[in-house]
Amino acid sequence: MSYKVTEENNVATVFLNGEIDMDVTEKAKEVIMPLIEAKKEVHLNLKDVEYMDSSGISVLIESHQQASELGTKVILKEISKSVLKVIMMAKLEQILNLD
C-alpha cells in the first residue's frame, strides 16, 4: 500500500493505493487517525485500491466511528469496484459515508 495526503482548508484527502490487508492496516491507521484527531474532515480516495479485506474494512469502520465521536466525518470517494463489493458484502453502504 502507498498513499498521498493533500490538505485544503479543513479537508484532508488521503489517496490510498494498492492492496489493503492485515499487513498494512496499522500503517493506514497511522496515516488516517491523526487527521481525524486533528478534527479534519477526511476524504479517503479509494479509486486505486485494488483489494481490501476485513482488516481494511475495519480501518474504515474505526475511522468512521472515531470521526463521529470527535464531531467530524470520513467520506469515501471514488470507491473502486472491488472495494465497493466488499463494503456491500459487509452491508456497510448505509453506515459509512459513500460519495
Binding site: S54, S55, I61, M89, A90, K91, L92
Partner: peptide, 17 residues
Amino acid sequence: DLDDIKAGGLGTFFIGQ
C-alpha cells in the same frame, strides 16, 4: 452480528457469504 457495527468477525462472515 450485522447490526453490531464493529470490525471483529467480518472475515468469518465473508467466508460464510
